[in-house]
Design a protein around this nucleic acid. Structure first.
Lengths: 225, 225
DNA sequence: CTATACTGTTACCTTGTGGTTACCATGCTA
DNA sequence: TAGCATGGTAACCACAAGGTAACAGTATAG
């Protein structure tokens, strides 16, 4: 994951970069508007970035212009960031195409979360999960094994989503029952059937199932080992 | 566009509803957690909503539980809203699956913008869409298969546009009904007829339809595989 | 004014899901 | 070793969800 940070305050920028790096996010850095434009020119676009954090007030001009420019051609989602709390500024930023907005001073963890969300939102692949030969796209609701698309029922989707969320930690029976049948007191057997069916759909001969049972602790989504 | 507002402060809620209505956003309203759950139970899910605004502190419990319960099951994006500025609260909300977060007091225009962004209404709309031998030009409102132009009725066009916007993610029945018949309470069957008609117009012998049904999850525009 | 097409409605058919039951395998304990 | 708990599989079936065709009312165009 790679983002572009455009920010004139060197101290804040350094802190931000450190924090995002620690979160596993690579950061390219531009201190000025002209520098940002240079980068855009070099890479032919901002396409390579998963997101752009843009400080509104830069020494060599207002960042809105960059936003308007970049939006025409490029897909990278923009998070605006400024000291101003003025509502008009915010609305202007959104109108210009910003997808999120955060006011200084902000907490770095929040920034990180918002950046991650942003990077996922536009790529539409925010929730993609890979496991062995299995490819799961939660937003598009597609499961693929290689080229073959696997069709899952709604309940099976719910279960798979739950397992993937917690993976590779196990999920116990009570959690699953509560999650899929929140109201009704249901039979254990339904849970067993559901599991069997999901396993069957995800299975391939020779290969052990990616859904493993840990006796007494629940089931977990993980590669066989 | 329809959203669900869960908020215990009646005055704030009324203001919010008025403002959003003026922006062309319909609002369902729940004052308590239990009421929200009732709505979820009635509608079988929150699928019908384009977004949910959730106040964190409700008289009958913390709203996080609602979020966690229903996350895997419902698709509606959640905007959290609370008086607390505590970072931990924010992070907890994001961790629970919220896609945005706004602290009180907030400006209504900003809320409206964020809701619209969340609902995806402001997302980049591609002008041209290609799928297999199908070529759809949204600005010119032309569908072609190879050299042959396909003529679609207004409703069919609306549906195709909606599907293409979300593709390859599925669009569920509630969304389609609301999108094409915004006011009237209509029969399920109209939706079925419309789908059949669109399928028929887009179909070519031998080739499976590009409109695929995922039982219980809606229909999606994608290539067969 | 007639003809055509679009939309709403009904009826009927097909399919797959999900709930249920029965039965088998394993492993632990008395 | 029997007995029991836990987990897995298969088969069954009611029923809801989805698909199609046909028909009627109403626009719209020529």
């Amino acid at each position: 994951m790679l983002i572009l940070l455009v920010e004139d305050d060197a101290v804040l920028a350094a802190q931000t970069i450190d924090f995002l790096n620690a979160e596993g996010i690579e950061v390219d850095y531009a201190a000025t508007l002209s520098h940002a434009k240079e980068i855009a020119a070099q890479t032919a676009s901002f396409d390579k970035y998963d997101a752009i954090i843009l400080d509104m007030s830069l020494p060599d001009g207002n960042a809105l212009s960059l936003l308007q420019q970049s939006l025409a051609g490029f897909d990278a989602p923009v998070l605006f960031c400024t000291a101003a709390t003025d509502l008009d500024d915010k609305l202007a930023a959104f109108a210009a195409g910003a997808l999120d907005y955060i006011t200084k001073p902000f907490a770095l963890p929040e920034l990180a979360v918002r950046v991650k969300l942003l990077a996922g939102k536009v790529s539409k692949c925010n929730q993609v999960f890979e496991l062995g030969s299995l490819h799961v796209d939660f937003s598009a609701k597609i499961v693929k094994r290689g080229e073959r698309t696997i069709v899952l029922s709604p309940q099976q989707w719910q279960l798979l989503a739950l397992l993937a969320e917690q993976a590779p930690a196990p999920v116990n029976k009570a959690q699953i029952l509560r999650h899929i049948w929140p109201d009704s007191e249901v039979n254990n057997n339904m849970y067993k059937s559901l599991l069997t069916r999901l396993r069957h759909n995800l299975s391939r001969d020779n290969e052990p199932s990616v859904i493993q049972t840990l006796k007494g602790q629940g089931v977990a989504l993980r590669e066989s080992s």
